[in-house]
Design a protein around this nucleic acid. Structure first.
Length: 111
DNA sequence: ATTCTTACA
DNA sequence: TGTAAGTA
């Protein structure tokens, strides 16, 4: 695992920003028994994504939302789709986003 | 030498 | 966000 110093170089983010994103609930980092943060390669990807998303959209709340969507894809695949009684054969690249879209649609009552 | 938290600008 | 202070 890498230290925060290495992460600063590899992401272009300041340690201040990295710590701030963590306390904002955008990400969670592992800690050593001494309390120091340790980062994985995946943490770097996440931080890079946050960096990108942040200057495109700005809001921390929105980045938080999009980050949840991404995690949802990995956590809940197929079986949940059938439970939602989906019949479409279109490929689902972002399940959470699709479900949100479906909820926003006014479905006529089946008689 | 590095990192951590808290706090002020 | 940057930075200073006092630690671990």
């Amino acid at each position: 695992m890498l230290s925060i110093g290495e992460i600063e170089r590899r992401t272009g983010l300041s340690s201040r920003q990295i710590r701030y994103y963590e306390q904002s609930g955008l990400v969670r980092f592992q800690r050593t028994p001494g309390g120091q943060r340790r980062f994985s390669e995946e943490d770097i990807k996440t931080l890079l994504l946050i960096k990108q998303l942040l200057d495109e959209e700005g809001s921390v709340a929105e980045v938080k939302r999009r980050l949840r969507d991404q995690e949802g894809e990995h956590a809940l695949p197929l079986h949940d789709i059938s439970r939602a009684k989906l019949t479409s054969l279109y490929p689902v690249s972002n399940r959470a986003q699709l479900l949100r879209a479906l909820r926003s649609i006014d479905v006529p009552k089946p008689k």
